[in-house]
Design a protein around this nucleic acid. Sequence first.
DNA 1: GATATAATTTAGCCATGACTAAAAACTACG
DNA 2: CGTAGTTTTTAGTCATGGCTAAATTATATC
Lengths: 231, 231
Amino acid sequence: MTKNYASEISSPLSSSHEDYLKAIYILETRGEQVTNSALSEYIGFTPASATNMVKKLAQMDLVIYRPHQAVALTPTGRRVALEILRHHRLLELFLHKTLDIPWDKVHEEAERLEHVLSEALEDAIAASLGYPKVDPHGDPIPSKNGEISHTPGLPLSQSEAGRAYRLVRVLSQERERLAYLGKLGLHLNVEVFLHEQAPFDGPVLVEVAGEEHALAADMAALLQVVPASAE
Amino acid sequence: MTKNYASEISSPLSSSHEDYLKAIYILETRGEQVTNSALSEYIGFTPASATNMVKKLAQMDLVIYRPHQAVALTPTGRRVALEILRHHRLLELFLHKTLDIPWDKVHEEAERLEHVLSEALEDAIAASLGYPKVDPHGDPIPSKNGEISHTPGLPLSQSEAGRAYRLVRVLSQERERLAYLGKLGLHLNVEVFLHEQAPFDGPVLVEVAGEEHALAADMAALLQVVPASAE
DNA sequence: GATATAATTTAGCCATGACTAAAAACTACG
DNA sequence: CGTAGTTTTTAGTCATGGCTAAATTATATC
């Protein structure tokens, strides 16, 4: 299991370590405080287990932990998290483009593969895809040295009606949700026309590839779009 | 970690379980008795650890274990071993053909990936490669229902001099050895002309792509060839 | 067939990373 | 500002799968 972590890391990290760091990273980017309960709920283990692991990560200088406080990644911890995220998103795109795995299935596959991806394989995959910037859901792929771009786009639910947009990101990894969107033709980079946004968080009427569909408001909130005219 | 094991298997298997079963399978195919020491040496753990695991595998009806006797796979155990071997060899070929990973590096990569390959991914890979029969070293790929073919071919070291042969299999996974062979142009299916086999296990003089090379006898013994004229 | 040597197994230890249950510490409200 | 309720931590358990050291069993030789 060849790893690429910042050379500062002494002990090798298990998949568990990596999963926790990735989870903390993702929760951090949501802007919320990474409380113990948020973390434990996200990773699907008990709060006691989360505390336990967080303390270990703190000993390795991957997170900053003060009892009863929100956890935070250290720079090194963030590097590790971003490397795993890079693995994950490169794998998602690779599986999608090279093996035609549908976008609603790539997440769970990548979830397991990301921990056993060598440096060499990561590079080969990135090269074979032409050093891509986003995965099949529009999530940005961190660069090899831990930089990550901000994807532009606003929620469809907050966009002006009567205009055309391009779908640039879907903020969900849920299989059923993605499968549903896919069936409507709502793939990445597809053009959608926003007919109407019903008030009081009512359904959103969109047209995709000539067909009209009504989307639940919270579904539309997950669809990040840019005006279709833009570039 | 979606698994494909014969439905008879109750508890899920860890990578360790799978590694042991694969090791036992490989040792069995070598014809030798799978003693505890042979097994422990092959997998690189202590004999005590091997005994321990073999007893667990016996409880799961994956191997037959009688103290102080050679271990043997049960039909179910063989199915599991063959499935992992299928994963391994499909992955080797996939990495080699799709990502241009050299044949001397694919083994160690596949070694980690084979345990986290889902059924769906296995199928997708097999399909994308056109349901191949052998991996980049000429090792046969077990079929989905656990059949495995016998590769024809005889050791180059035992072949008649003055004739042309085609390399159909290399019986080694050692990185350096494979890298060396690759440098000489000795890849799978390449044509070689056997000039001379020096007596008393002396070097073997071969011609590959116009160049002549002297191979150590034990190296030549690992090269399985068929007469070049054959089909 | 006794005994030396080699192989195998047993017994017991350790780290990992999950868990439950109970204790402790925060928060918020009356 | 004290107490109820929630969150977090602690303490201790368990299974896993390595390990070492010691006991046992097989084997092989005289």
